[in-house]
Design a protein around this nucleic acid. Structure first.
Length: 611
DNA sequence: AGCACGCCGACT
DNA sequence: GTCGGCGTGCTC
């Protein structure tokens, strides 16, 4: 029996490894979870490496030198795995991620373990050998198709082939997409299918983790990549351009980047799939890092309707009514898209001007005229809207602005014979349906609507931020796929370059947008970090972000803010943001992370968006 | 991540 | 004087 020196990684936010000792030869290999006494507490750690301990002098208890002092080592308290939890490759990969994102390895190891395995629970699975399968070589491609079904038929054969000798991971940006896709996919495969996402309980996740260690088709959201099995053979990233793939909380990763990195490590294929690529992926296509496989889209379905004169700025314009009239007369069905639920935008007292709001958030309520009630879209809190103002007891409460219910009621007056409903209350035979942008998620699989009319794209474009134009392009292009005949886009800014690029050769828009980004020193040519601090104490938040701003401004000339983040108050927390711009450099992200490390007050929460 | 230690301002 | 918030450093 020999004494082993065991190098252990903790699951806390640290890169350091700690030494423990262990008497014996069996049961310990890299990747095994062990229980150790860490800082007086029992903690789960991962064995990184083992060494034979050679006694120096006549010490019986193994010890090490820490800063010149000899410290006795603590023993490994227990071994939690029958074989191992992480493979050697996975440990190495956590180190790669740690380097790439300049964030401690412990955070990535922690992502790789299901919650159940982070606690001192035994894992009784016997894995054969800790040897990772490697593919022959990395390759990447972008598959461009207008609907999920279309893209699916382009990569389905590949998935079937790869499943014969390993596992395949298909990632989705949101749960609703995953659910819709599962319906399409599930009957085509007779292998094991596992679904992985954060809405599942810890118990469900560990269950799925256990059965997905080999030859499994895994469908999941962004976290699922951290649970990849060692026989992973192919990764598909659906709707690669979706912003949901970026995690705004530490350790700040983007699933698309990790997917490509992992495929490189394993020498397997990575398929990015989507309606349109992100700007970054477009550049990767242009530089031949990714191949492009494109389903030639059918004829263009977007019609830009310029609003001028009387119609400009109006929701109920003659242009809208004319289009509806034509569609209804031809016996077709149409969806009108307006991005505000409820009856109106604000409820306020016509006497004292008091605006009714949720007391935890500063955003607009979803206002119902019938129940005279407002529901907060963020925290679901209900606010009653009285007839007479409850603040001044003297003045009618008015509901102003436009919501889909108001549009619905006015259209009913204009088209009394037509069946008009909101999206939630639609019937199979509804002729006009009023919907918010929720239609994009729920109609991942197109339904039987002939036409769509987008009413509020000008409102969308008015939102501050350099990427609204690009986002609007992706949004309209996604909507375009949902309708059989036509998508009408009503705008008062018909000369804006976005509207010139919605039909014809799609790369034209990418070229123009990239030119603007280059001229204005914006991503993907420059880097941007947006830091958002939030806490219940507004003064503290502002002070902290002010200090942060000053510290960053010493080294970086391009610091903007603090800004009030919209919504400013969210679930009782006040939000301020900073925007930092920098030339592309290796250490930009790292320098930001160094600065935000100091914000560790339990009161203040932090989000960072890197672009 | 927690937790201890130590510094500095507010307050009976 | 001392209580407590919070910045800093450490964990084998």
């Amino acid at each position: 029996m020999s004494v082993k020196l065991v190098k252990v990684a903790t699951l806390i936010s640290l890169d350091k490894e700690f030494d423990y000792y262990y008497f014996g030869d069996v049961g310990l290999t890299p990747g095994v979870r062990v229980l150790v006494d860490f800082n007086g507490k029992k903690q789960v750690g991962i064995v990184l490496r083992l060494k034979d301990y050679t006694t120096s002098g006549n010490c019986v208890i193994p010890s090490i030198n820490v800063a010149g002092k000899v410290k006795p080592l603590k023993p490994i308290i227990g071994i939690l795995d029958v074989s191992f939890t992480l493979t050697v490759e996975q440990i190495k990969f956590s180190e790669m991620l740690s380097t790439f994102y300049s964030y401690p390895r412990g955070d990535f190891l922690s992502m790789m373990l299901p919650a159940y395995l982070k606690k001192a629970n035994k894992l009784e699975i016997q894995f054969n050998e800790n040897q990772d399968k490697k593919g022959s070589s990395f390759s990447g491609e972008f598959i461009k198709g207008s609907s999920f079904r279309e893209r699916y038929f382009m990569w389905k054969i590949e998935v079937k082939k790869k499943l014969l000798s390993g596992s395949v991971l298909i990632c989705f940006p949101q749960l609703s997409y995953l659910d819709a896709a599962l319906k399409v996919i599930k009957d085509d495969f007779n292998c094991r299918i596992v679904v992985m996402h954060s809405k599942k309980s810890d118990k469900q996740i560990i269950q799925e983790w256990k059965i997905s260690r080999e030859k499994t088709l895994i469908l999941g959201t962004r976290l699922s990549i951290f649970y990849y099995p060692q026989d992973l053979n192919l990764i598909i990233v659906e709707e690669e351009s979706d912003r949901c793939y970026f995690q705004e909380e530490k350790p700040f990763y983007n699933l698309r980047d990790i997917a490509i990195m992992l495929c490189r490590v394993k020498g397997i294929k990575c398929v990015l799939s989507g309606n349109y690529p992100s700007l970054l992926v477009y550049q990767m296509i242009k530089t031949n890092i990714l191949a492009l496989r494109e389903q030639k889209s059918p004829e263009n379905k977007i019609k830009v309707m310029k609003l001028t004169g009387y119609s400009k700025g109006r929701v109920m314009s003659p242009v809208l009514l004319n289009i509806l009239e034509k569609i209804i007369q031809s016996g077709k069905k149409v969806v009108v898209i307006w991005n505000k639920k409820g009856f109106g935008k604000t409820a306020f007292c016509s006497n004292c001007g008091y605006v009714f709001k949720c007391d935890r958030c500063s955003s607009f309520l979803r206002l119902s005229l019938k129940s005279r009630e407002g529901v907060c879209p963020h925290c679901q809190q209900k606010v009653s809207i009285p007839q007479i103002c409850s603040k001044c007891n003297n003045g009618y409460v008015k509901i102003s602005g436009w919501g889909i219910e108001k549009i619905e009621s006015i259209l009913r007056k204009n088209f009394p014979e037509v069946l008009i409903n909101t999206w939630e209350n639609r019937f199979l035979n509804s002729q006009i349906v009023l919907s918010t942008s929720e239609i994009v998620g729920s109609l991942y699989e197109p339904e039987a609507f002939d036409a769509g009319i987008v009413l509020d794209i000008d409102g969308f474009l008015a939102y501050p931020g350099y990427h609204v134009t690009f986002d609007a392009f992706l949004y309209l292009k996604r909507l375009e796929c949902l309708f059989k005949d036509c998508l009408y886009v009503l705008t008062g800014n018909g000369d804006y370059y976005l509207f010139q690029c919605l039909s014809g050769f799609w790369e034209k828009f990418y070229q123009l947008e990239l030119n603007f980004r280059k001229e204005l020193s914006l991503p993907p040519f420059f880097e941007i970090a947006k830091i958002i601090l939030r806490s219940e104490d507004e003064g503290l938040t502002l002070r902290t972000i002010g200090n942060l701003r000053n510290r960053i401004a010493v080294k970086n000339n391009y610091v903007y803010g603090p800004f009030k983040e919209e919504p400013f108050k969210l679930r009782g927390k006040y939000r301020y943001s900073l925007v930092i711009r920098s030339r592309k450099s290796e250490n930009f992200r790292e320098s930001i992370k160094v600065e935000i490390k100091n914000i560790r007050s339990s009161k203040i929460q932090l989000a960072v968006i890197f672009e």
